[in-house]
Amino acid sequence: MAAIGVFCASSRTLDQRWLDLAFDTGAELARRGHTLVSGGGCVGMMGALTDGARSAGGRTVGVIPQALVDLEVADLASDELVVTDSMAARKTVMMDRSDAFLTLPGGLGTLDELFEVWTTATLAMHTKPMVLLDTDGFYRPLLDWLTTLTDQQFIKPAGQSLLLIAETLPAALTLLTPPSTLH
C-alpha cells in the first residue's frame, strides 16, 4: 500500500464537522492499508486525522519542525516522528516520504503545502497523485480563481489538470489511489 501525505488545519477552534472529516479520513486510509504521513501535530484536524488512522490500526508518520515540538503540539503517539529544523524542511520530508497527497480543508499552512507539492509537480519534479477534497465547496472560491489564472495563461491547462478535485471522501480516495498506479 501507499504512504499518503495529508495536509490539513491544525487550528484548535474548528467546527466539529471538520474534525470528524479528518478523523474519518485517517480511519479510511488505515482501513485501506495506507500509511498516513502528516504534519506531526496532535491538535485540530491534524490530531483528529492521526487519531482516526490509529483507531483503525493504521501506521502514522509525523513530520514536525522543532519549533512546534517546543510548543508541545507534537503527536508523540506517532509510529515514527521525524523532527525537522524548519517548516521548509518539513515539506521536503513529507514530499519525499509520500506516494500521493490529499489536501483537506485548511488555512495558510495547508495552502502552502498544497502549492509546494503542486508547483513541483508542474515542474516535473514528481508525478505523485494530488487530490484536493472540496467538501461543501470549501475550496470553490480558490478553484474559481485558479481557473481565471489558467484562462489568462498564468497557469498552463496541463498544470492545472495535475490537481484532481473531489467533493467527497470516497471520491477523493478513489482518485488518490487508482489500483494500477500505487502499490
Rank of each mutant, 00 (worst) to 15 (best):
A2P: 15
I4T: 07
C8P: 01
C8N: 07
A9C: 03
S10H: 06
S11L: 01
T13K: 10
L14F: 02
Q16A: 13
R17K: 14
W18P: 02
W18E: 03
D20Q: 13
L21Q: 11
L21F: 07
A22N: 02
A22G: 06
D24F: 03
L29A: 05
A30M: 06
A30G: 07
A30I: 01
A30Q: 05
R31L: 06
R32G: 06
G33P: 07
T35S: 06
V37S: 06
V37F: 07
G44E: 01
T50Y: 00
A53V: 02
S55I: 09
A56H: 14
G57C: 10
G58Q: 09
V61K: 02
V61N: 03
G62L: 01
V63G: 09
I64R: 00
P65K: 00
Q66E: 03
D70F: 00
D70A: 05
L71R: 05
E72A: 05
V73H: 00
A74C: 01
L76M: 03
A77K: 05
D79E: 05
D85R: 10
D85S: 13
D85C: 08
S86P: 11
A88W: 13
A88C: 14
A88H: 14
A89T: 09
T92E: 15
T92K: 15
D96K: 12
S98V: 14
S98D: 10
A100L: 11
F101S: 10
L102Q: 05
T103Y: 11
P105K: 04
G106P: 02
G107D: 04
T110Y: 05
D112T: 13
F115V: 09
F115H: 05
V117P: 14
T119S: 12
T119P: 15
A121C: 10
L123Q: 13
M125H: 06
K128A: 13
V131F: 15
F138L: 02
Y139D: 01
L142G: 08
L143Y: 07
W145E: 06
W145D: 06
W145M: 11
Q153C: 09
Q153D: 15
I155F: 15
A158C: 10
G159E: 06
Q160M: 15
L162D: 13
L162F: 11
L162M: 13
L162V: 09
L163G: 12
A166Y: 06
E167S: 15
A171V: 10
A172F: 10
L173M: 10
T174N: 08
T174Q: 12
L176T: 12
T177F: 12
P178D: 11
P178A: 06
H183G: 15
H183N: 14
